[in-house]
Computed example of a mutant assay.
Amino acid sequence: MHWQTLAASLTLTASGADALLRFSCSQLVVERLDPLVNPGMAPSPHLHQIVGGNAFNISMDPKAPPPTVATCTTCTFADDFSNYWTAVLYFKARNGSYHRVSQKPNVGFEQATGGMTIYYTPYIGNTKSTVTAFQPGFRMLIGQQNYRTKAEAQKFRQLTYTCLKDPMTRSGETMDMPTAPCKAGIMANVRFPTCWDGKNLDSPDHMSHVAYPTSGTFESNGPCPTTHPVKIPQLFYEVIWDTTPFNDKALWPADGSQPFVWSQGDQTGYGSHGDYVFGWKDNALQKAMDTNCNINCPQLKTQSIAVGNKCTRQEQVKESIDGWVDSLPGGEMSGMEHA
């Protein structure tokens, strides 16, 4: 299919990867829930956009793995009932009101209501290595919602932005939120650590059980630290925010500063973060990693994007999040999470 060829070309150009899964996950729900950081809290402090299996709920009990609860998934690999989520981007007008920024499909992916592109990469280039797929009950978080300086954000060196000149742009990543209008929107790139301690499926901060390579990056085949010796796939989200309706600089702050704000109240962009709850059925992900699937994976069960678009879940938090609003959903509470 044309979109698969195009997707492969984009991905290989961007990362040099010779083996990876790259697939679409349509929007499941947008609401104030965070079962990883705020389990049992409804509403949670700030708004998230969630894709994946419809088992997503307030608590996500580790004793009830998503594949045993979910009845559908928004992802094109039909055995992936994982949940992937990030904060939501808003535009802040000169009068102080906010408008939610919608998402747009990535190249070659037709999504009904936005979503993400998800990657799982076992190795880069010609240096093949064995990776251990995430295990049932595994979950993790990357980023800190309360960070507001670049010095803080350096800890998460692979949380970046791409100012899209056109839908094909895959260069020019920065840690800073773009400060000029982007012709085709802003892509938020969320790359998770690729080393695991081999013992804990989670940790109190949802990060300590994983780590970045001791030097370099996953892409440069950096070695894992001795404390986290197990190589895991690089999990990577691409989220394209359609900022184009707000590209008129006359709408931007009078001082020319960039007007986009994450839903936790972060206008710096340094509070970008992503959450993950593993939910692949049986050994499907390990099978894909062992066979070095490249975009397509005949070993896995797939479904069309149209079928994925039909997977939905009823909102559990009822509130107005669209149109012009006077404050971010959650108001002052939005800045409390992950503190």
Results as ranks from 00 to 15, higher is better:
residue 126 N to E: 13
residue 205 D to S: 00
residue 207 M to T: 02
residue 95 N to H: 05
residue 203 S to L: 10
residue 183 K to H: 08
residue 213 P to T: 08
residue 101 V to E: 08
residue 108 G to S: 00
residue 191 R to N: 10
residue 119 Y to N: 15
residue 205 D to E: 10
residue 125 G to R: 01
residue 120 Y to R: 03
residue 133 A to T: 11
residue 170 R to T: 14
residue 126 N to D: 07
residue 189 N to Q: 12
residue 111 Q to W: 09
residue 168 M to R: 14
residue 179 T to C: 03
residue 175 M to D: 01
residue 197 D to I: 04
residue 201 L to V: 10
residue 121 T to K: 12
residue 219 E to Y: 08
residue 141 L to D: 14
residue 174 T to N: 03
residue 204 P to E: 03
residue 117 T to F: 07
residue 136 P to V: 01
residue 172 G to P: 02
residue 181 P to W: 13
residue 120 Y to W: 14
residue 166 D to W: 08
residue 210 V to T: 12
residue 182 C to F: 14
residue 155 K to L: 08
residue 132 T to F: 07
residue 191 R to M: 11
residue 190 V to F: 15
residue 189 N to Y: 03
residue 178 P to Y: 11
residue 117 T to D: 09
residue 171 S to A: 10
residue 183 K to P: 04
residue 174 T to K: 13
residue 140 M to I: 06
residue 132 T to Y: 08
residue 189 N to G: 08
residue 107 V to M: 13
residue 162 T to Y: 02
residue 177 M to K: 08
residue 136 P to S: 04
residue 192 F to Y: 12
residue 212 Y to A: 04
residue 123 Y to L: 06
residue 110 E to V: 05
residue 165 K to S: 11
residue 219 E to K: 09
residue 193 P to M: 13
residue 160 T to C: 01
residue 98 Y to A: 04
residue 157 R to I: 00
residue 209 H to W: 10
residue 151 A to N: 04
residue 97 S to E: 15
residue 105 P to S: 07
residue 140 M to W: 05
residue 203 S to F: 06
residue 113 T to W: 03
residue 143 G to W: 01
residue 143 G to H: 03
residue 155 K to E: 14
residue 139 R to K: 10
residue 103 Q to C: 06
residue 150 K to C: 03
residue 157 R to N: 14
residue 149 T to R: 00
residue 155 K to I: 07
residue 181 P to K: 14
residue 116 M to I: 10
residue 214 T to H: 01
residue 155 K to D: 09
residue 150 K to A: 15
residue 171 S to V: 10
residue 122 P to I: 10
residue 189 N to R: 14
residue 198 G to I: 11
residue 141 L to Q: 14
residue 218 F to R: 13
residue 192 F to C: 05
residue 143 G to K: 03
residue 161 Y to R: 02
residue 218 F to V: 06
residue 197 D to V: 04
residue 169 T to H: 09
residue 99 H to D: 09
residue 217 T to K: 10
residue 219 E to C: 00
residue 138 F to R: 12
residue 184 A to C: 06
residue 137 G to M: 04
residue 113 T to R: 14
residue 100 R to K: 15
residue 113 T to L: 12
residue 214 T to E: 09
residue 198 G to W: 05
residue 162 T to G: 02
residue 180 A to C: 02
residue 128 K to Y: 05
residue 206 H to G: 04
residue 167 P to I: 02
